[in-house]
């Protein structure tokens, strides 16, 4: 259920297969596969020069976003038992809302429309790669310019909300998304993606930790108390994740901005 899409019709098949897994129960793979397929389709639509369906794919993906966040939290290590219990209850509540989207005429229309689209020729997809590469290069430069030392040298563990405002994390997240989109664009163009997959994995660890912070904030908003030990652990993991991301960004094979 993973790997590059051969066509938009293949995307429709994958959405339906992922939806079945998501509907059956607690296996997080269905939700994950559904969202990943949505992202691959969106990139393919852009490379095709189509604006229609983009909002529909985003609509579907957004319905499953909060569910995916909680799945990452539940799969995470060191999560306090009380927070895990909160996440389990919350997941059960929002799962029904997410699954309702699969009964919507918009979802049925999307799957049917994807099957009606012509193939995206790799040559045509390749013509659009330049803009994705430039976006990655721009995001990498901005991330590289951000001074991480003022974050890493922070002796006191700050309140959780500080992390979501942290420019370094925001820029790392933006770079990760652009790397992901470039990877999918290269898939559509039939090009290699190994280096991008490696980089995406490196950034993924940081992304998961950031997500834990967001979930912890959600728990706090529901009057949960994040134990000091877990906050310290999160801080350590975020700093380590930022360092890894910085190293990954430095090793990216990027086009020369002056070319």
């Amino acid at each position: 259920m993973s790997g590059r899409l051969r066509s938009f019709a293949d995307g429709a098949d994958r959405l339906e297969a992922a939806a079945v897994v998501a509907e059956v129960g607690d296996d997080p793979e269905g939700v994950h596969a559904l969202r990943v397929t949505c992202r691959r389709i969106r990139v393919g639509l852009k490379l095709s020069g189509l604006r229609v369906l983009e909002d529909d794919v985003r609509w579907l993906s957004d319905h499953f976003g909060p569910l995916r966040d909680l799945d990452v939290l539940l799969a995470g290590s060191g999560v306090p038992p009380e927070m895990r219990a909160w996440a389990t209850d919350r997941r059960a509540a929002i799962r029904l809302e997410a699954l309702a989207s699969l009964e919507d005429p918009r979802y049925r229309g999307l799957v049917r429309a994807l099957r009606s689209l012509s193939e995206l020729e790799p040559r045509r997809a390749g013509e659009g790669l330049g803009s994705y590469e430039r976006r990655v290069a721009k995001a990498a430069r901005r991330f590289d310019a951000e001074d991480l030392s003022r974050v890493a040298l922070e002796s006191e563990v700050p309140p959780l909300r500080i992390y979501v405002q942290l420019p370094a994390l925001r820029l790392a997240h933006a770079l990760r998304r652009r790397l992901r989109d470039l990877r999918y664009a290269r898939e559509w163009a039939g090009r290699g993606t190994r280096a991008l997959v490696r980089a995406q994995d490196g950034f993924g660890v940081l992304s998961d930790e950031t997500l834990l912070v967001r979930c912890a904030l959600g728990w706090e908003a529901d009057e949960g108390v994040v134990p000091e030990r877990f906050r310290v652990e999160l801080h350590r993991r975020l700093m380590a994740g930022l360092e890894t991301a910085r190293n990954m960004a430095a090793a990216l094979p990027l086009p020369d901005p002056h070319e």
Binding site: R51, V52, L53, R108, G109, L110, S116, L117
Partner: peptide, 25 residues
Amino acid sequence: PKLRALQTAEALVPRLRAGGSTTVL
């Protein structure tokens, strides 16, 4: 979702207001 309607809708995209959206039904 039929292709001819989708392509007709695509031609209408320039008439979408800022913040407007398309939807397939």
